[in-house]
Design a binder for these strands. Structure first.
Length: 259
DNA sequence: ATGTCTAGTGAGACTAGA
């Protein structure tokens, strides 16, 4: 089965692109980030018409996440546990049944954290602590669990075309990278790194300054697999060609195949 | 060097967020 993650940067502006990609790639299970829509305004019907079950967790204006599946969700969790006061819609988790047992997908939109001298950076780090706690707890269930999304973390220097320009940025600060390593060390396998020779392999190119044309990208969309999921990993892909379509998102889809 | 985009408000061109 094919499982994908994509920061679409606004569902209303991206509907044609999203439908084209769904028809082309036919993921069995997918998570979207930055839907930028309240649940009531999300254009469900065209996606459902392609045979997808849809679960959204949105808010007004920005953020917002969604799950899509060709088979019904048996369970859905909205919000990242650990802070009832957190109003930002950045996490949704769902379980689907497969021939090889249940598959649990957590779709996340990790806070950007810039500027670092504002409350946004401590919010990012606190959110990562909550994510790691939730991930540790979920791993105890020993299921095929995929934690996927826009992590807003550049893990290593080779994950940026120009790492020197990211020094001091929240996406590359030592604290952000350390928290991402700690998450991995709970027992996850980072699927792209595990299967690809990640040289100049990016998932995000800024709209500004011709970043796409210059391949000035960063790799910040990640697919983390529990041991039970990693044992079933067949391969991964980055749908880089989508960045050349009309009205692209600044992120491209990343996906993996499980047997 | 930023050569940009999206959504909200509200009715034109700002702002916030990235």
């Amino acid at each position: 089965m094919k499982i994908a993650s994509w920061n679409i940067n606004g569902i209303k502006a991206r509907m044609d692109t999203v439908l084209r990609w769904l028809q082309e790639e036919q993921p069995d299970l997918a998570c979207f980030q930055e839907i930028k829509s309240i649940d009531e305004a999300f254009p469900r019907e065209p996606i459902e018409a392609l045979g997808y079950h849809l679960e959204t967790h949105g808010q007004k204006g920005f953020n917002g996440v969604a799950l899509l599946s060709k088979t019904p969700f048996e369970e859905v969790i909205r919000r990242l546990p650990g802070d009832e006061a957190d109003e930002q819609a950045r996490y949704i988790e769902g379980v689907v049944a497969t021939d090889n047992g249940p598959v649990r997908l957590g779709g996340l939109y990790l806070p950007n954290g810039n500027p670092v001298d504002t409350p946004k950076f401590p919010y990012k780090l606190a959110w990562m602590q909550r994510l790691n706690a939730h991930a540790a707890q979920t791993l105890q269930q020993e299921e095929a669990f995929i934690l996927a999304g826009d992590y807003n973390v550049i893990p290593d220097p080779q994950d940026a075309a120009k790492p020197e320009t990211w020094v001091g940025d929240a996406l590359y600060r030592p604290e952000s990278r350390q928290a991402f390593r700690a998450l991995n060390h709970l027992g996850f396998t980072e699927a792209i790194r595990a299967t690809q020779d990640a040289v100049k392999t990016y998932t995000f190119w800024d709209y500004q300054a011709g970043a796409w044309q210059r391949n000035n990208g960063i790799r910040i969309d990640h697919l983390l697999l529990s041991p039970e999921a990693a044992d079933r990993l067949q391969g991964t892909g980055i749908d880089k060609h989508v960045r050349d379509w009309e009205k692209p998102s600044d992120h491209v889809p990343v996906w993996l195949e499980l047997n």
